[in-house]
Design a protein around this nucleic acid. Structure first.
Lengths: 194, 194
DNA sequence: GCTTAGCTACCTTCCAGTAGGTAGGCAGTC
DNA sequence: GACTGCCTACCTACTGGAAGGTAGCTAAGC
């Protein structure tokens, strides 16, 4: 029942990997067919068009992210630890190279040439992530566990931007450790009084 | 004598705009030919291959960046003002939408699928920019004009990452002001004692 | 007997790149 | 000053391959 069609999931997983490597125009249905082990038209059977595939993929990605952050809120009480956990997730992804970049961050860089349906999903992810970070910042401030230099909203936007920029630097240098090198001082600044 | 061939320059300028919009695979020789007003094979006359074109473009971009930062060092003495000036440059670019993204930052996001010759140039730009920022941080620290929370190198990498991430956020939100919103607190933290 | 999941064969369009030609400019030379 | 040779900057016409996508078939399963 949950394994109705593993092929569609395989296609989505494969497309995600390919998008993370080179963006929307960096892969084709032929690439996916090769990896998944079916013929090109069979990919169309699962996802009628490329826009359809990528929109579904990003939508699914957003659901996972929202579920993941909800779980984080349930399992970790301290706002500072929540931030550390969030960062740790990406640190691990970048280290083991399974998915060393946020799908939405990569697609956002090509926003001007993205099909509108995909662009909408990407923008929605940015708004959601920034809102979640702002709520963590706000709570951390109220509880005296995070020391903000500006408003929760601005601090959240700065945090998100730095995380995305750190992913980019890690990729540019070909050095997974660069992500942590950049983010750790940021966490320290937020969680220690000065 | 300096206007030997403005067509080659037109092609480079056009390609730069197109890359900023959608990356390496987001444009074609046909797109360039349309904008510049010549036929597609005539583009090949100036740049034998697409790799050739983009490598030249990035190489030229790096030269301009290095010249620009050299001029900044000559004209502005205070390290904090140098950072403000650098940020102000991008703020203006994003605001008037002429080139609202760093060519190398965009290409870096697609590094895994970039032709090696282009990838080399992109990585070199990251190293150069980070080195320049580190030297500014170092000097600012010595002169007591910048207050670093960690080493000059780490502070420089964090600064660069935040600038790149802020470009991405401005694009994702479709809001040029977002860049300044994110970067201003960063400049404040570096230039005021706390 | 309808649905699902795959297939082969094919279409149109676009892609980077090539072949080969033309028109004009600028030497040098008789 | 006309002729020759070469160069630059384009052009038309084309190639091979890859792109996204379609038509219509088969085989299996409930």
């Amino acid at each position: 029942m949950s394994t109705v069609s593993s092929t569609a999931d395989d296609i989505l997983a494969c497309a995600r990997t390919l998008i993370i490597a080179g963006g929307y125009n960096g892969f084709s249905y032929a690439d996916i067919a090769d990896v998944v082990g079916i013929r090109k038209p069979s990919v169309h059977h699962h996802f009628a068009s490329k826009v359809d595939l990528v929109r579904t993929l990003v939508s699914r990605y957003r659901e996972e992210a929202q579920a993941g952050l909800s779980a984080l809120e349930r399992n970790v009480a301290d706002p500072a630890d929540q931030l550390r956990n969030y960062v740790g997730y990406w640190e691990a992804c970048i280290k083991d190279a399974t998915a060393p970049f946020c799908v939405c961050a990569l697609l956002a860089s090509e926003l001007p040439i993205l099909p509108e349906e995909v662009a909408l999903e990407v923008r929605a992810h940015f708004r959601f992530l920034a809102s979640w970070l702002a709520s963590v910042m706000e709570r951390g401030k109220r509880q005296g566990r995070l020391h903000l230099a500006s408003t929760a909203r601005v601090e959240a936007e700065g945090f998100m931007a730095t995380v995305h920029g750190a992913m980019l630097s890690a990729r540019a240098y070909g050095d997974p450790k660069m992500f942590g090198t950049i983010i750790r001082p940021l966490l320290d600044r937020l969680s220690t009084r000065h």
